[in-house]
């Protein structure tokens, strides 16, 4: 069972793996609340029309060294996506703060990584709003959000 990491620690995944559909199937679906999985190379503009119907987007991290998912998350937020956003795959605890800062709400990891990097190591990174240069420097335009 995968584990979902949030600011206060681990919790068990409540969504069923089979809930997640790719963008193709999401377009065809008539469900009202979708769980969509995106590869980190997806064009965010192509997801935008579906925003009202999406409850959660999960972006895959094939490797912790591949940072495309962070930019994709940032773009989705700037395009107005306000639903849940999850980073899933190979993300290490040392990346938790930057994942949160890029716009993710949570990280999904497997049991092996959770055993190697237990909950305390993730919680120690959970104060992601502190020591945050970009937040301090850049004023966000309130009209553009959402």
């Amino acid at each position: 069972m995968p584990i979902v990491v949030r600011d206060h620690g681990f919790k068990r995944e409540e969504l069923n793996e089979s809930n997640f559909v790719d963008l193709e199937d999401a377009r065809k679906s008539d469900k009202e609340s979708l769980a969509v999985e995106l590869p980190n190379c997806e064009d965010p503009q192509s997801v935008k029309p579906l925003f009202p119907k999406i409850e959660i987007i999960r972006i895959k991290f094939p490797n912790f060294g591949d940072g495309r998912g962070f930019s994709l998350a940032g773009k989705l937020r700037e395009l107005g996506y306000a639903g849940r956003l999850r980073a899933a795959g190979y993300v290490i605890s040392d990346q938790y703060a930057i994942a949160r800062r890029s716009g993710f709400d949570e990280v999904e990891i497997d049991e092996a990584l959770a055993a190697r990097q237990p909950e305390t190591q993730w919680i120690s990174k959970s104060k992601w709003k502190a020591h945050f240069y970009q937040d301090r420097l850049v004023k966000v335009n309130p009209d553009s959000v959402g």
Binding site: G67, I98, S102, R136
Partner: peptide
Amino acid sequence: ELLRQWSTDHPEFQYL
């Protein structure tokens, strides 16, 4: 210096 601060630990650009 502005760029130094802005680029330090920039969340989007740590794994280029």
